[in-house]
Computed example of a mutant assay.
Amino acid sequence: MEAAQEAPDRPPLDLNALSDAAFLSAKGIPQLTVVESTGSTNADLLRGVTEDPRAWPDLSVLAAEYQSAARGRLDRRWEAPARSAVSVSVVLRPVNAEGRPLPTQSYSWLSLLAALALRQALLDTAGIPAELKWPNDVLVRGRKIAGILAQLGPLGDGAAPPVVLGTGLNVTLTEAELPVPTATSVLLEDPATVDRTELLKSYLSHFAVLYRSFCNADGDPAAGMAGGPSLHKRVEAVLTTLGKQVRAQLPGDHEIIGHASRLDEYGSLMVVDAAAHEHVVTAGDVVHLRPWAPPAADDAGPDSAESGYA
């Protein structure tokens, strides 16, 4: 671990490999742009799809070597050293094979689909087993290695609004460079490689296959996809949140504490509280808690449910 504390060599992304016409064509990616530095790739693409929608067709990709104003969920800011992460955003204009837009209620699955693709990329490329944490994190041994943020673009010309999907993967961050102690990076997980180009290509490859299959199923998470189980089943199989006691922090300073039981058809988390009431959690932070025994009915309450962080 001592050696890992030293900042590793951080080569740039391989533009030739990423711009390879055969790779882009096979994955249905119309364009892939890499910039040396920007505030936020998500913000850049949101501005792009607003000002010049035709310039950013479905599956357009923007990656950055360094982001100075990246934002996560709940408007949290984060920053990583240049060339230490995979920072990438993708424009999505979900339509089926006939060109019919997907229902917008299916959009809530897109960040989970991306997390699933990134999990597979980590396993295939770096040999790192990972899990998903609802709604949009990728974990290794309980520590966050990546986060995903989906943002809705403007509604124009009567068509369904586009989605900008941003992904930030910690690759060569050392222990000292991690944003919080509960984070990790590819480097710190005994990887087969820390090649950001290969990780990015693998992620985009897996994402494109799952995304196209999801679109061709009209955004139905219960439909079989890419020659295998449905998106719903695939996500639930690797979602470490399920089966845990959680605290769901909701907008407006509200919270629910209980047992995370399943995902509904919209990708929302179902949480059963100590009084056996099932709640639908559609957005908000979820904290995994240590296991607890349900209190007696006359004793039930949020305070008795919480026993700290896992």
Rank of each mutant, 00 (worst) to 15 (best):
P294E: 11
Q105P: 04
Y309P: 11
L139K: 10
P101E: 09
L173G: 03
V280N: 01
E265F: 12
I128A: 00
A237S: 15
V281E: 05
K233I: 12
E51Y: 09
E175S: 14
A293R: 15
D303N: 11
A43K: 07
A160I: 05
K244P: 03
A183T: 02
A117L: 01
W78F: 04
A176S: 12
A305P: 02
A217E: 10
A274F: 09
A297L: 14
A160N: 10
G153C: 12
D220H: 03
F214E: 09
P135T: 00
A183W: 08
T50P: 06
R83C: 11
A69R: 12
R143L: 14
H232F: 13
D253Y: 10
G258R: 00
R73C: 14
P154K: 15
L116N: 06
R247C: 14
G267A: 03
P30V: 10
L242I: 07
G72D: 00
L92W: 04
P12E: 02
F214S: 04
T33I: 08
G156P: 11
Q67H: 10
L263D: 08
V90W: 01
L250R: 07
L139S: 08
G166C: 05
V86K: 01
A21Q: 00
S89A: 15
A70M: 08
R234P: 01
V88F: 04
R247S: 13
L200Q: 11
A283W: 04
L188N: 01
S230H: 10
G308W: 13
L45F: 06
I256F: 05
P11E: 10
D285P: 00
A55L: 12
A126E: 07
L165S: 02
A293G: 01
G301H: 10
Q5I: 15
V90E: 02
Q31V: 01
D190Y: 14
P162D: 03
S25P: 00
V86H: 01
P294R: 14
A117F: 02
A17V: 03
E177T: 11
V49N: 10
K133S: 13
G48T: 11
Q245Y: 12
E236Y: 11
S185R: 04
A260I: 03
R83T: 01
E265G: 13
L116G: 05
L46V: 00
Y266L: 15
A237E: 15
L289I: 05
R76P: 02
A159T: 08
D253N: 13
G156S: 15
Q5V: 13
L15W: 06
Q151Y: 07
N96G: 05
S84W: 10
E6V: 14
S87W: 07
L118P: 09
P53I: 02
D253Q: 05
V91P: 01
A305D: 02
D14A: 11
P154L: 06
I145V: 15
A260G: 06
T182W: 14
A274S: 12
G39Y: 09
L204D: 07
H232M: 07
A82G: 07
A130R: 04
A222Q: 13
L139T: 09
S304P: 14
T125R: 09
E177G: 08
A226G: 06
P81T: 03
T240K: 15
L242T: 08
